[in-house]
Simulated scan of single mutants.
Amino acid sequence: MSPRGVATPDVRERLFAAAERIVERDGPGALTSRSVTTEAGCAKGLLHAHFAGLDEFVAELCLDRFARTATRARALTELTGKGTVAGNLDAVVLALFDRGGPALSGLALTRPAAAQRFREAMEGGAPGFAAVQGAVSDYLEAERALGRVASTLDPPTVALAVVGTAHHLLMTTWPGAPDPRPAVKRLVAVLVEDAR
């Protein structure tokens, strides 16, 4: 545990990773300020020293993870012409389900103040599902130009179907439920392969 008054490096990420472990292992109901700092091995007040409270912490955690996935999605265009189209899409879309994704999404919805902060950030332009969807569409356009998917493939519609399905599964999956990733992989394979 970090002693009082000693700086904790990468505090936000350390607390975020601890929260993900708690939610994945014990469910959203186990997430408290104290459980996060205990899991992170930090001083009890550290979370409140960096966030206005647990609701702000939860909102910031969700926003951070969406931003990471959006950054990863934007990098899809660098994979144009490499690997398989389905494999490249899987890597980005399945990242939404990493590290407690479904449980974290549900957690934000059950905390009205966190949900409001998250909504305001999205309205203000923070990256979310729309950013991922746009990046997937751009990637599919580039692959279509190379002839790696059928010329009849409609990139915006396929992107909407894939990201919309991921969103649905994130909102309806809970710890202990069947793994949603195989369904997403099947959908990606069907949409991309059927169009070839």
Rank of each mutant, 00 (worst) to 15 (best):
G53T: 00
T77P: 05
R65L: 12
F66R: 10
L54D: 03
E56R: 09
A18K: 09
R25W: 07
A17G: 08
T77D: 13
D90T: 02
D26R: 11
A52W: 00
H48M: 12
L54G: 02
E20P: 01
F57I: 03
A70S: 10
D55I: 02
A59C: 12
E24N: 09
T69S: 12
E60G: 01
L76V: 03
R68I: 05
L63I: 06
A91M: 00
A67E: 13
E78M: 01
E24R: 13
L31I: 11
G29T: 04
F16E: 09
L63R: 12
L47R: 06
R25G: 10
D90Q: 07
A59Q: 10
D55L: 03
R68D: 14
G41L: 03
H50E: 11
V23R: 03
A52D: 14
A86R: 12
C42F: 02
F97Y: 07
I22T: 08
C62F: 05
A49S: 14
T32S: 15
R34F: 10
D26S: 10
D90M: 03
A19G: 04
A30K: 01
E60K: 08
F16G: 05
T80H: 02
E39C: 09
A43P: 01
E20I: 08
K82V: 08
R72I: 00
S35R: 13
A59S: 14
T38D: 15
L47W: 05
E78F: 01
F51L: 06
L46R: 12
V58G: 00
A19E: 09
K44C: 03
H50P: 01
R74E: 15
L96P: 01
S33D: 14
T77N: 09
A40C: 14
F66S: 11
G87D: 09
C62W: 09
C42L: 11
A18L: 12
A18W: 09
R72F: 00
E20G: 14
T37W: 04
G81Y: 01
V92F: 06
E56M: 04
A40V: 11
A40W: 08
R21C: 08
V23W: 04
F51R: 04
R74Y: 11
T69I: 11
E56V: 04
G41C: 07
T32H: 06
F66Q: 14
L47P: 09
A59F: 12
N88H: 06
E56T: 05
T69E: 10
G87Q: 06
K44S: 14
C62Q: 13
A18V: 12
T77Q: 10
A17Q: 05
L61Q: 11
F66H: 13
F51N: 09
K82R: 15
D26H: 08
N88C: 01
F51C: 07
H48T: 11
T38F: 11
K82E: 14
L61G: 07
A52P: 01
N88L: 05
L94G: 03
L61K: 08
T71E: 15
A17M: 04
H48S: 15
T71R: 15
L15H: 06
A30Y: 02
L63C: 10
L61M: 12
N88F: 02
G27P: 14
R21V: 15
F57G: 03
P28H: 05
L76N: 07
T38I: 14
V23P: 07
G87W: 09
G53H: 00
